[in-house]
Computed example of a mutant assay.
Amino acid sequence: MPQFNVTLAKDASADELEKAKQHVKDQGGEIVSEFTLIKGFTAKIPDDAVSVLKSNDKITVEADGEVTTQ
C-alpha cells in the first residue's frame, strides 16, 4: 500500500482530524505516525481511499517520500 502524508488546515477541528484517521482505518489503511506540530499524520492508504480524503478542502494529501536539500 502506498504511504501518504495527510495534513489538515489550521482551522480544522480535532474532530475533523479524528474523522480523517478513522476514514483511513475504515478503508483498510494504517496510521504510521502522527505529527505533533501540525494537524496530520502519515498513513498507508489504499488508492481508492485517497480520492475521498483529497475531496475535502481542509485536507492535503501528498505521497510520502525522501526529502533532500541541495
Results as ranks from 00 to 15, higher is better:
residue 1 M to T: 13
residue 1 M to K: 15
residue 1 M to R: 15
residue 2 P to M: 07
residue 2 P to Q: 10
residue 3 Q to V: 15
residue 3 Q to D: 14
residue 4 F to R: 08
residue 4 F to E: 05
residue 5 N to H: 13
residue 6 V to I: 09
residue 7 T to Q: 09
residue 7 T to D: 00
residue 7 T to S: 10
residue 7 T to G: 01
residue 7 T to L: 06
residue 8 L to F: 00
residue 8 L to G: 03
residue 9 A to S: 15
residue 9 A to G: 07
residue 9 A to L: 08
residue 9 A to C: 02
residue 9 A to W: 07
residue 10 K to L: 09
residue 12 A to E: 02
residue 13 S to F: 06
residue 14 A to T: 13
residue 14 A to C: 01
residue 15 D to Y: 14
residue 15 D to L: 14
residue 16 E to I: 02
residue 17 L to T: 05
residue 18 E to R: 14
residue 18 E to I: 08
residue 18 E to K: 15
residue 18 E to Y: 11
residue 18 E to M: 09
residue 18 E to W: 10
residue 19 K to G: 04
residue 20 A to W: 06
residue 20 A to D: 02
residue 21 K to V: 04
residue 21 K to E: 04
residue 23 H to N: 03
residue 23 H to W: 11
residue 23 H to Q: 04
residue 24 V to K: 06
residue 24 V to R: 05
residue 25 K to C: 00
residue 25 K to W: 08
residue 26 D to L: 06
residue 26 D to Q: 11
residue 27 Q to I: 00
residue 27 Q to F: 09
residue 28 G to K: 07
residue 28 G to S: 03
residue 28 G to Y: 09
residue 29 G to M: 09
residue 30 E to M: 11
residue 30 E to G: 00
residue 31 I to L: 12
residue 31 I to C: 10
residue 31 I to K: 10
residue 31 I to T: 09
residue 32 V to H: 06
residue 32 V to G: 05
residue 32 V to A: 05
residue 32 V to W: 05
residue 32 V to Q: 09
residue 32 V to M: 08
residue 33 S to H: 05
residue 33 S to G: 07
residue 33 S to Q: 10
residue 33 S to V: 08
residue 34 E to K: 13
residue 34 E to P: 01
residue 35 F to K: 13
residue 36 T to K: 09
residue 39 K to I: 02
residue 39 K to W: 07
residue 40 G to W: 03
residue 40 G to D: 06
residue 40 G to R: 04
residue 40 G to K: 03
residue 41 F to W: 04
residue 41 F to E: 01
residue 42 T to K: 09
residue 42 T to P: 00
residue 44 K to T: 07
residue 45 I to T: 05
residue 45 I to G: 04
residue 45 I to C: 03
residue 45 I to V: 08
residue 46 P to D: 04
residue 47 D to K: 14
residue 48 D to I: 02
residue 49 A to R: 11
residue 51 S to W: 01
residue 51 S to E: 12
residue 51 S to V: 06
residue 52 V to S: 08
residue 53 L to A: 03
residue 53 L to G: 02
residue 53 L to C: 06
residue 54 K to V: 02
residue 54 K to I: 01
residue 55 S to Y: 01
residue 56 N to K: 15
residue 56 N to M: 10
residue 56 N to Q: 13
residue 57 D to L: 10
residue 59 I to W: 08
residue 60 T to P: 00
residue 61 V to D: 00
residue 61 V to A: 02
residue 62 E to V: 15
residue 62 E to F: 12
residue 62 E to K: 15
residue 62 E to L: 14
residue 62 E to N: 14
residue 64 D to P: 00
residue 64 D to R: 12
residue 64 D to W: 13
residue 64 D to H: 14
residue 65 G to Q: 05
residue 65 G to N: 03
residue 65 G to E: 00
residue 65 G to C: 01
residue 65 G to P: 02
residue 66 E to N: 10
residue 67 V to F: 06
residue 68 T to M: 11
residue 68 T to I: 12
residue 68 T to S: 14
residue 68 T to L: 13
residue 68 T to A: 13
residue 69 T to H: 11
residue 69 T to M: 12
residue 69 T to A: 13
residue 69 T to F: 13
residue 69 T to N: 12
residue 70 Q to T: 12
residue 70 Q to R: 12
